[in-house]
């Protein structure tokens, strides 16, 4: 029983991180119909920038994190402006190919700057454990979960009540109509990429702290964004959150309860991905167009 609770709690914590990363993906897809295969590399960039700030430049870690997240946002906006802006109006498949290429390019740039061998990273989240319901849970996981929830709450407020947030949802709904009321679609895209880069960077930093090191594996977590968003619905923000938690739990249980030689922990999310595509391709919360009768 303790083991199950422990697996559940660590699954939820991982799931919250997946959800953060998926959220950025969904935002980009909703506002500009771009399927961003380079989402995992945004994670990697966030983590390595933080590493550079804290370890290489010796900044106090909260300052380092803030600077790194800000820089990640700048990288996001630059990618949008330099790479995706010229592709407006091109077929979806070209855009997908470009984001796949972009992911290789970004990984190579990170490799060129920081090398490919894993490096130990600062663990700024506390590493001790607490006992919840009889299970030992790392405090860093609880922090990760709490931070993810706080970020979600902020973003929800942003989309409900701020002018830019409402403009972003308007663009997601009907781009031309949004344009007709003076909403700058280009600005909305830039904001979407900035937010995606920020959430991914925060996800990357949390993972770095949990792993105690930075390496290419952090970028691999970006792959898990696909099961998450397909499960939750490509264009649904609540779907990204719930999908993230479900995939986190699933991965944790499949890896912890089934015989380890099956190696299902890594694969289970993708089995779900296949299954969802077969039975419910728009996901749990994906938008089906509202039709008035």
């Amino acid at each position: 029983m303790d083991r199950i609770i422990q697996l559940a709690l660590s699954g939820i914590a991982n799931g919250a991180i997946f959800a953060l990363v998926a959220l950025g993906f969904v935002l980009i897809y909703k506002s500009s119909d771009v399927i961003n295969f380079a989402q995992g590399e945004l994670l990697l960039i966030g983590a390595y920038l933080t590493y550079a700030m804290v370890e290489q430049f010796g900044l106090w870690w909260p300052a380092g994190v803030v600077v790194a997240v800000a820089l990640a946002a700048v990288v996001g906006v630059l990618i949008e402006q330099l790479v995706l802006r010229p592709l407006i109006g091109e077929p979806a498949i070209s855009v997908i190919m470009v984001t796949i290429g972009l992911s290789s390019l970004l990984r190579a740039i990170v490799g060129a700057i920081w090398g490919v061998t894993p490096r130990p990273a600062p663990q700024f989240l506390p590493t001790d454990t607490v006992t919840i319901l009889g299970a030992n849970v790392g405090v860093d996981r609880i922090w990760a979960f709490g931070l993810a929830i706080a970020l979600f709450a902020l973003l929800t407020l942003f989309f409900r009540f701020s002018r830019e947030g409402i403009a972003m949802r308007a663009v997601a709904d009907d781009q031309q109509a949004a344009l007709s009321m003076g909403i700058s679609v280009k600005k909305v895209w830039a904001v979407a990429w900035a937010i995606a880069a920020i959430t991914a960077a925060v996800g990357g930093i949390l993972l770095m702290s949990i792993f105690g090191g930075v390496s290419g594996t952090i970028g691999r977590v970006g792959l898990l964004v696909f099961p998450v968003v397909i499960l939750g619905g490509l264009d649904s923000i609540p779907g990204a959150i719930i999908g993230g938690l479900i995939i986190g739990l699933l991965q944790s249980f499949a890896g912890g309860l089934l015989p380890p030689e099956w190696g299902l922990g890594e694969v289970a999310p993708f089995i779900i991905l296949l299954f969802i595509l077969l039975v419910r391709p728009y996901g749990l919360f994906g938008q089906r167009i509202i039709e008035r009768v």
Partner: peptide
């Protein structure tokens, strides 16, 4: 008409007041 279908009436009006 092209209203923003997934936004509420008031959010649609807020979008109109963007400028």
């Amino acid at each position: 008409r092209r209203v923003f279908e997934h936004l509420t009436v008031e959010e649609n009006l807020r979008a109109g007041a963007y400028t």
